[in-house]
Amino acid sequence: MMKFTQSCRIHEKKIYRNEALFYSDQALDDKTNFKTFIKGAYKYLGQSYPKFFKMDRLSKLGFIAASVLFSDRVLSAYAPEEIAVVMANRHSTLVTDTKHCESIKNREAYFPSPSVFVYTLPNILVGEICIRYGFKGENAFFISNQFDQDFMYQYANLLFQSGETKACLVGWVDYKDEADYSAILHLLET
């Protein structure tokens, strides 16, 4: 049987762990943007992971959500290849795509950046989480117009039934712009 064990939710500059408020931006005014909010959360978590600052906004959002979810839980009971990460979103990597496109707009100043381009794939976020926690199990990233929890749970369940997945991080991590972003992560276990 598959059971839901942990969750994290981020939206409107607030982070919830297992539905209890975990972190919110002190100065909840319009001046705090995503960048300061997510950096504040990173500092609050007391992490030392310089790669965080190299991530794009989508990866930062998902990475912080995973950090909160795993802040009081270590998946040591499972082998790395038994832990799957399955995610979805709507806007793929739109903000980073636009940034990459800006860098190739002018043929006189044509400097596409490898560190921007690499984040133009949404599953890079899955990679970042797998690198941070050493997860080597199943991977999948879907694009859908909204968080389809039923499907995500169904897919996780199929992975569990295969007998090779014991834990699955499923979620929705979407970043459209400053005003429209959200992360929902659920940890499912056998």
């Binding site: 790395p80 890079i124 690198i131 926690y133 997860f135 080597k136 199943e138 090779e164």
Partner: peptide
């Protein structure tokens, strides 16, 4: 079928082929 992650680097392939 099956899938996996190297848990190594976002653009560089694993040096071992383990993933």
């Amino acid at each position: 079928g099956g899938s996996s992650n190297d848990a190594n680097h976002i653009s560089g392939p694993s040096r071992t082929g383990d993933g």
